[in-house]
Structure formats: C-alpha cells, structure tokens
C-alpha cells in the first residue's frame, strides 16, 4: 500500500476496494473508517451508522463474504478486499429475495437496522441455505432492532430458506 505525505505532513494512503463487484481506488487517512469511505466517498449510504462501537450492527457489510461492523474496520485494512453492501444485493430493478421477504413479512418499521440485518442474513443463507430458527436468531444477534421485536425479521429470513431435501411435508 502506497503512503503519500501531504504539505502539512499528514500521511495518506492509496487503497483499492472491491465494492459490489466494482473496483474503487481512493486516498484515505489512517483514521478513515471503512463505513465512512462507503458512505462519504462512494455515496453508498445504505450502510448505516448507529453506535459506532460494534454493538448495534447497523453498519454491517460483508468483508470477503463475512459479516463485519464497518465502523470497526480501518479503510487501510480493507485495502485489496472484497466488500458487499446492501446496494450490491439484487440486480438492476429486481430486489434480492431477502429484501422481498422483508417487505412481504413487514419485517421493518423505521428501517434503520434493516440493511445491516439483511447483510447478516445474507451471509447466513450463503453458508447455510436451510437454517433453523435458532441459527437465524444467532446470526442476527449482533444486529439490534428497537422497533419490530424481531419476530417478523426471523420469519422473513426463514421464508428465504431452501426447502429441506425431499421437499416440504
């Protein structure tokens, strides 16, 4: 990673992020957080900022396929890595099945936790296409929602699970 010193003597770093399949090269400072690059530099404001301490999960993105809090990842540390945000789900005008399921099940009220919630759910379904309710609840345990009581969120995620082999009973 290339470091450049500006006139005031502040070091800046040239990084390349692979976000939602596109490559972006940006100059960042050491203290720039991944969430701020996504929101302020790339205009990907679907990723939210809540507690900014790693408790609430509203800034969840997938880093190399794994859900992480983008408020706790330095942009320089994400250099060269693949990032998937809520904007990377679905194709063109077509929503991801998870997004459709959240709408169909009324799994959101204020909507602030939703993008992080969906990213955690996406990671779960990618690695475990047919999770149990317990596994769903565990996967979203790092995503706090103060409106819904979680019931419809769990329902929405479970509705996207593949049918067990041999079909439903």
């Amino acid at each position: 990673m290339q470091a450049i010193q500006d006139k005031e003597g502040v070091k800046r770093y040239l990084i390349t992020l692979y976000v939602n399949g596109d490559s972006y090269t940006r100059v960042v400072k050491a203290n720039t957080l991944l969430v701020n690059v996504l929101r302020d530099e790339l205009d990907l404001t679907g990723t939210k900022k809540g507690c900014e301490l790693g408790d609430c999960g509203s800034c969840t993105v997938l880093l190399d396929g794994k859900p992480v809090n983008s408020c706790l990842v330095l942009a320089v540390e994400a250099d060269g890595h693949e990032i998937l945000t809520i904007e990377g789900l679905g194709e063109n005008e077509k929503l991801d099945p998870l997004q459709e399921a959240f709408i169909a099940n009324a799994a959101l009220q204020c909507g602030y936790c939703t993008s992080g919630m969906i990213m955690s759910a996406k990671a779960l379904l990618n690695s475990n296409p047919n999770p149990t309710e317990q596994e769903v609840r565990e996967a979203i345990a790092g995503n706090l929602c103060r409106c819904t009581g979680y019931v419809n969120i769990v329902k929405a995620i479970l509705s996207c699970a593949q049918q067990p082999e041999g079909g439903s009973e």
Binding site: G54, G57, P67, V68, N69, L72, V73, S120, A139, G142
Partner: peptide, 9 residues
C-alpha cells in the same frame, strides 16, 4: 463470545 460480526474480526 460477543456477536457474529465481532467474532469475524
């Protein structure tokens, strides 16, 4: 420990 996001980093 913690939650899934934290356990990943």
């Amino acid at each position: 420990m913690a939650n899934n996001q934290i356990r990943n980093i």
